[in-house]
Amino acid sequence: MPTRINWAEAIRPLLEKYKNKKHPLDYENVYQLLVMVVLSAQSTDEAVNKLAPQLFATFPDLESLAQASPEGLWPYFKGIRNFAHKAKWLTDIARQLGSNDKIPLSMEELVKLPGIGRKSASVILRGAGKPPEGIIVDIHVIRVAPRLGITNEEDPKKIEEQMMKALPRDEWDAGMAMSFLGREICRPKPLCEDCLMNGVCAFFARVGLAGVIAMRGKEGGAGGARPAKKTPAKKSPAAKAPDGKAAGGKEPGGKAAARNAPVKKAPPKKAPKKKSPAPKPKKAVKKAPAKKTARKTTVSRHNYSYPR
């Protein structure tokens, strides 16, 4: 690979591959794109696409969105990072603009709106079919551009500045093309052998295919291809002859069958219940005979005969 790359020429295959490819956000008009771009900052496109149908069914335009309070939008923003600030930004934008036809379509005016920076403005302009006024630098471009070698910076603002100097204005869609490449091929664990830019890529020239495969933690086959997934073979049961014998003439069962047969665990023995000793018969208690009380006889002298 030459030490100095003519990026205006080298980037053309990438631009051709992703030319006019729609942004992953699933929008239907500029209003929806503006709202979804604000929500997607530090969140995934998938999360924003998931909530969009319910959100836009309730707030189909800026006029209806202007009537909402920030707190009233919170239930619609589940799973979105920094949702409270984004709700405030969107209601402020709606009240400031008033209607969909007032959405500005220039970098200078878009970045004046709350929650919209240069990257977001570039995405909105691209979605609206306007000529680029900057280069999109998202999380994927921050990874892809230094790997290619078109920039040696890591700060988004500086990456955009270097790329704008390296490429003519009619190739400034390279940012979005790099973003698509980063989603599909140039991932954190890249698939460099499948990349149409590996002939001019500084990272691939430095690391090589062996280094890339080591990054993925996989062993490549011939030519560095990714190995196919191994499917465990299913064991077919032994065929039986008509007389019930296994193929090979051996009777089913025997020692081999006994070894292969599943071992049935005997149920745990229950401990016998201890019988409680029979109660001893109570000894009859002999009651002492009641003492007879002698009657006192009163002798009356009137009934007693005295001798004369």
Results as ranks from 00 to 15, higher is better:
T3F: 10
N6V: 01
W7P: 04
W7L: 02
A10P: 07
I11Y: 04
R12P: 02
E16C: 04
K17V: 00
Y18T: 07
Y18D: 10
K22H: 10
P24N: 03
D26H: 13
E28P: 01
V30Q: 11
V30A: 13
V38F: 05
S40E: 06
Q42R: 10
S43M: 03
T44N: 01
D45Y: 05
E46I: 05
E46K: 09
V48P: 00
A52P: 00
Q54Y: 05
Q54E: 09
L55E: 07
F59A: 02
P60T: 01
D61E: 11
S69W: 08
G72V: 07
L73D: 03
W74E: 15
K78C: 01
G79F: 09
G79D: 03
K86G: 02
K88E: 12
L90D: 15
A94Q: 04
R95H: 06
G98D: 08
G98S: 10
S99L: 10
D101T: 07
I103D: 07
S106T: 15
M107Q: 08
M107C: 04
E109T: 12
L110P: 00
V111L: 02
V111S: 04
V111F: 10
P114C: 14
I116M: 01
R118L: 02
R118P: 01
S120D: 11
S120P: 01
S120Y: 03
S122A: 14
V123E: 09
L125E: 06
L125N: 06
A128N: 05
G134S: 09
V144Y: 06
V144P: 09
R147Y: 06
G149F: 04
G149V: 08
E153N: 05
D155K: 07
D155M: 09
K158E: 13
P168F: 02
R169D: 11
E171R: 06
W172I: 06
G182K: 00
R183K: 14
R183F: 05
I185A: 01
I185D: 01
C186T: 01
P188I: 04
P188G: 01
D194M: 11
L196E: 15
L196N: 11
M197G: 11
C201N: 04
F204G: 03
V212S: 00
K218V: 11
A222P: 05
R226W: 09
R226L: 12
P227G: 13
K229P: 03
K230W: 10
P232S: 05
P232H: 03
K234L: 13
K234P: 00
S236A: 12
S236Q: 15
P237G: 02
A239K: 13
A239G: 03
P242Y: 08
A247Q: 12
P252S: 07
G253E: 05
G254P: 11
G254F: 02
A256F: 06
A257K: 13
A258M: 10
A258L: 10
K264A: 14
A266L: 14
P267L: 13
K270I: 13
P272T: 15
P272K: 11
P272C: 13
K273P: 00
K274G: 13
K274L: 11
S276P: 00
K282S: 13
K292L: 12
K292H: 03
K296V: 15
K296D: 08
S300G: 07
N303F: 11
N303A: 09
S305C: 09
Y306E: 13
Y306F: 09
P307T: 15
